[in-house]
Write a protein that binds this DNA or RNA. Structure first.
Lengths: 237, 237
DNA sequence: GCTCCTAATTCGTCTAGACAACTAGTCATA
DNA sequence: TATGACTAGTTGTCTAGACGAATTAGGAGC
C-alpha cells in the first residue's frame, strides 16, 4: 500500500466524520485556514481535499460564508461509486439482498476478453435480488474475476456489500465505473423474480468497474423497477 | 458579463480546440510548463484548467507521459451538461430536431413553485422530437421561464440548441442540472410520435437545470427509446 | 425601527517556485 | 540478444504567501 497523499488523507478523514455523524448535514466546517493549521498543511492542500468533497457533493461551499456538509436527497445517487445499499442509505429504509445464484462458472468469450483472461476460465457469477423495505427493487447479475476475490463466498456477500468486501477484505482500490443505461421490458423470468408483470418497464444498467491498476473488477448487469428512480447531478462545463 | 477567471479562459480555449478538431482525439497537449508559458500564467493555474478538462473527460492525463485528448465512446454522455446534439456529436450521426409544440403557456402550480413565479404566470413550453440519422430517438417536453429567455422563438430553436441559445444569446451562465431517471412504458400519444408501440419501454428523464445565480433555467422531461443508451462514468470516492 | 455603510470573515484566484513519482526511451553490459 | 541502469521529460504533490470577491454582522445616522 503506497502512502496516500495528504489531501487524500484529509479527504478521507472528513468523509468519515460526515458518514458517522460527527459532521451532520448542514454543519459548517472549520474555515480553510483553520483546517490547514489543524492538519499541518498549506491552505492549497486543504482546498484540494475540499475540491474533491465538493465534486462528490459531500459539502457545499459558499464564498464569503463558509463550507457546509451537504443535505442528501432521496433516491439512488449515481454521482459516487458506491454500493446499492449506500446509494439508498440516506432514506432510512431497510435495504436487503437475497442471493439467488452463486457459483464459479466458465466465462463466455466477451466477458473473458473484458477481464483479460481466457475463455472458459473460471469467474464468480452472482445473481441477487435487492429489496428496499422488503419489496423487490432490482435484480443484479454480476461477474467477478476469480483473481480479484479468490475466497469469495456466499456468506461473505450476506454480511456486507460486494463493494466493501472488495475494498476492505481484498484491498482492491477502485478507480471508476462505466455505466450504460437503457429502458427495457422485463423478461418473464426476471419479472417473476421481481414480482412484476412480464414486459414491465425496467431500467437496465450495464456497469463495468475498474480498479486503480486498470484491471476490471466486476461486470454487473442490473434491472431496476420503475418505482426506484436514479438520481444524477451534472455539472456545467 | 463578469470577467472569467484565467483558468476558465484556458479551459474554454482548449475545449474549443478539441471541438473543432485542432486537437484531435489521441493528440498530446503541450506539457504543463509550456502551457503556462503560452498563456502567461503559473503552472498551478494551468493545472486547474486541466483538472476541469480531466473531470469532464476531455483529456486523459498520464503521469510521466503527458496529457492527451480523450477518445470518445459512442452513445449519449451524461457526465457533462450539454445539449442532446452535443452528447451525440462524436458519433458522426446527423442529429436533428422537430418542434411539434411551441407556445407561451400559463404554468401549473408545481412548475411555478420551481421557477419561483406565480401560478398561471407565463412560461415557454416547447415539445420537440429529437432524431438521430432521421430516426426518432427521443421526445422532449420543456418548460422555460419567460424571464430567462423573453424573445425565444420557434426559429431560434431550429438553428441552434436550446443550451447554446441560452448561454450564447441570453448570457445565462449554467451551473448544474439534477436529473432523475426511470424506465416507463410509452403512452399511446408519445409512442405514436416516436413511431413506437404503445407501452414500449423508454427512459424517462426529469431534468432541472440551474443557472449560476441559483435560478431555475429549464425543466425538461424526456423519453428516450431503448435503442439510444445513456453513458455515464462514475468516479470512485 | 430602518437604511446604509463599514469591517471582519470566508472562499476564490493566482504566483513562483520545490521536490517526488512515474514513463519511455538510451546505452552499457552480461 | 536480453537485461538492467541511467536519464530526460512529464505529471503529481505541496508550500507560503498575496490579493480579489462575496457574505454577514454590527454600528452610525436618520
Amino acid at each position: 500500500m503506497p502512502r496516500a497523499p495528504r489531501y487524500r488523507v484529509i479527504y478521507d478523514d472528513i468523509v468519515s466524520q460526515i458518514r458517522d455523524g460527527r459532521l451532520p448535514a448542514g454543519a459548517q466546517l472549520p474555515n480553510e485556514n483553520d483546517l490547514a493549521r489543524r492538519y499541518g498543511v498549506s491552505r492549497m492542500t486543504v482546498r484540494q481535499s475540499l475540491d474533491m468533497l465538493d465534486a462528490e457533493r459531500y459539502v457545499v461551499r459558499r464564498q464569503g460564508s463558509g463550507t457546509f456538509v451537504a443535505e442528501r436527497r432521496s433516491g439512488r445517487h449515481l454521482n459516487r461509486l458506491q454500493s446499492f445499499g449506500d446509494e439508498l442509505a440516506a432514506d432510512d429504509v431497510d435495504v436487503t439482498s437475497e442471493t439467488i445464484h452463486f457459483e464459479e462458472y466458465p466465462v463466455p468469450p466477451d466477458i473473458a476478453d473484458l477481464f483479460g483472461i481466457r475463455a472458459d476460465d473460471i469467474a464468480h457469477r452472482v445473481k441477487r435480488i435487492r429489496k428496499v423495505g422488503g419489496v423487490p427493487a432490482a435484480l443484479q447479475d454480476a461477474w467477478i474475476p476469480y483473481a480479484v476475490a479468490p475466497a469469495l463466498t456466499r456468506e461473505s456477500l450476506l454480511e456486507d456489500s460486494l463493494y466493501r468486501t472488495l475494498t476492505g477484505r481484498y484491498g482492491v482500490e477502485l478507480s471508476h465505473a462505466d455505466q450504460e443505461l437503457t429502458a427495457v421490458g422485463l423478461s418473464a423470468d426476471h419479472a417473476a423474480r421481481l414480482g412484476a408483470e412480464e414486459g414491465a418497464p425496467a431500467l437496465e444498467s450495464r456497469r463495468i468497474t475498474y480498479a486503480a491498476d486498470g484491471n476490471v473488477v466486476e461486470r454487473v448487469t442490473s434491472w431496476t423497477l420503475q418505482e426506484f428512480p436514479l438520481l444524477l447531478r451534472i455539472e456545467a462545463q
